[in-house]
Design a binder for these strands. Structure first.
Lengths: 220, 220
DNA sequence: TAGATTGTTAATCGATTAACAATC
DNA sequence: TAGATTGTTAATCGATTAACAATC
């Protein structure tokens, strides 16, 4: 048991596989909406935008949920992927920073549809605190710890300017959240037991610009 | 020359390295702002949140921009990384879908700071078309091709609901953009010459939920 | 049974890490 | 020169892909 962070259930699911599971779940939901009840690795892979071999390999880490010669039951597989992702337990989210982005996130219906409840909004700006956004009253930043404790939020979202990100991050960690999703373009320092995912839209554009260059300027 | 998409310049930069370059650029800008003029792979790696060996390996694909025993000139290295990413040419961006998210993106100052000009906003909703957002007048969706041609946009951002994403994507491709950044939770089909990057915030939360589960429910 | 499709194995490929010779 | 730090090589590691035996 010197192995770092390994669940007791089955063999570990590799990170690259975990990162693709939400896409499979999305594709399964789309198929279900279209009335499809049984699917194949070929069909599901196409819907998710990956190769069929990769899909089967990924699913094999979760267990054996298909039937040879037949395929996968859409509803059953979706349920199992949901279980593995931990979506059968309600996940509560607190959003810090209620600017345009925070507004967008607080109002986004896609969260509820995919297993998340936004339970609190927090901001430092006195002009924003107390206003109603997406059905919630914005709380002051210095109440963060209390708000997290009171709501049972386990995931924090940072939607503040980059300059404030590390302080907000520290406060979220101190308040006891286990995972952080940050939109601020800055590397965050966190203890090892806190999971961080970063979305940086300008970085995404820069990666697109790289390929754009290769395409437009072949020689120089 | 049967090799697919390979630039004529130097040896290809691996995708995983390209994806980290924006982070290095960010870290370099932070160091420069702090008055640092020379840095080491150790210092820069720490600022960017990666290991020093990985940083040096990544930079080695771009060329030799450091000096042994001394380190890297911050300004010079930032310039070179910018060149490789294609940021010395102005990149023009059109945003489709001006809801909360589109608003947030249109108003985001971080784009301009990092080499991008938002040159056009487009929406289908008649109530939104004609309004002023972030200093730009929102154009009707059926004008997309004309707007892209007139502004010279080469990158399209999709900030619409998932149901509209594929149609918007097709229209952007038809209009001639070379890269697409989508926030809609749906796999997009595009021709091979168009580069797509997808940001799905609910998927990010689901990945966090996976680790949350491992932590909170060790046994079952 | 014959046909279809999974789950798994093995081979390939790419990415990361560590170590160190080159060199400032 | 002695100390520092890069750039590169080689070793390790993990991820992807292809092929096919198992089996419905």
């Amino acid at each position: 048991m010197t192995q770092v962070r390994r669940s007791a259930q089955q063999a570990a699911v590799p990170p690259s596989t975990v990162a693709r599971l939400p896409g499979y779940l999305r594709a399964l939901d789309e198929l279900a909406s279209a009335g499809v009840t049984t699917t194949s690795s070929d069909e599901l892979a196409r819907a998710a935008g990956v190769g069929p071999a990769q899909l089967r390999k990924d699913l094999s880490y979760l267990g054996s949920y298909g039937r040879r010669g037949v395929g996968y039951d859409v509803a059953h597989l979706a349920e199992q992927v949901g279980v593995v992702l931990g979506l059968r337990v309600e996940r509560r989210v607190v959003i810090v920073g209620i600017g345009y982005l925070g507004h967008a996130l607080a109002s986004y219906s896609g969260f509820a549809e995919r297993g998340f409840a936004v339970v609190a909004l927090v901001d430092v700006d006195e002009a924003v605190v107390g206003t109603l956004v997406g059905g919630l009253v914005v709380e002051p930043f210095d109440e963060l710890a209390r708000v997290v404790a009171a709501t049972g939020a386990t995931i924090g979202v940072i939607a503040t300017p980059a300059a404030a990100a590390q302080d907000v991050c520290d406060a979220l960690v101190a308040a006891g959240v286990g995972g952080i999703l940050t939109f601020a373009p800055r590397a965050l320092r966190t203890p090892a037991h806190v999971d961080v995912r970063a979305v940086d839209v300008a970085s995404e554009l820069q990666i697109l610009a790289f390929h754009d260059t290769r395409r437009q300027v072949p020689g120089a």
